[in-house]
Amino acid sequence: MTEIQKTVRFKIKRQKDSETQPHWEEFDIPYRAGMNVITALWDIAKNPVTANGQKTTQVAWDASCLEEVCGACTMVINGKVRQSCTALIDHLSQPITLEPMTKFPLVRDLRVNRQRMFDALKRVKAWIPIDGTYDLGEGPKLSAQEQQIGYVLSKCMTCGCCVEACPQYNDRSEFVGAAALSQVRLFNLHPTGKMQKEERLETIMGSGGIEDCGNSQNCVEVCPKEIPLTTSIAELNRQTTLYGFKKIFQK
């Protein structure tokens, strides 16, 4: 008895580098229960042959943890940005299209360079400027409620979904994006971070800062970690508004 093996059809956008024209390649991958997009990409690595039998090269993509905590394997799957590790084949309509994120410089195939997001974290001073790592005793007390708010914000893995879906984030704008803004809220609510609150607000009141947000709220819809990004932005709107008034009327 021969059993016909079920296969999964993939359509993958291939591009050697940012200068060459992209083209599409299709692949048929043997189906296994519970498989995700990563598994399929590995199958292609083991056997880089297209659906019509043509030899090709392995697809380049980024991956690291495969549990949706590192953010590396983000790509555009069936038109929507998400992590490929949690993209289970059973939940996707076929052919499954894989494309790179569009808001970052393309490196190759599904790989992009998200340096701009890390630069944004630098710009907004997303850290607590501790005095040093020497033994300075216990940290500040924190209520369980504040911890719960902070923890959710702190789960941001800089994956780029929020800015990929943001109509205001592109190479014509300098917008830092929701992820970095939300970090400002995080550090501004921490008992120590609060001390540099105004310094941090200054970093987002210039060009490319919070005012570049167009309020489309796509960020909060696509965030895989369900971070309340629009609440963060609105909260920072409040903080910057009050600080703006303070700057006008206290000088």
């Binding site: 501790i130 790592t133 033994d135 500040p140 007390k141 120590t192």
Partner: peptide, 21 residues
């Protein structure tokens, strides 16, 4: 114990007791 305090000072969102510890 000192390492926990250091991480706490860096802003790691450790879960808290009702007293905030």
């Amino acid at each position: 114990p000192g390492i926990i305090d250091l991480l706490d000072r860096m802003g790691v969102m450790f879960n808290r007791t009702p007293e905030g510890n």
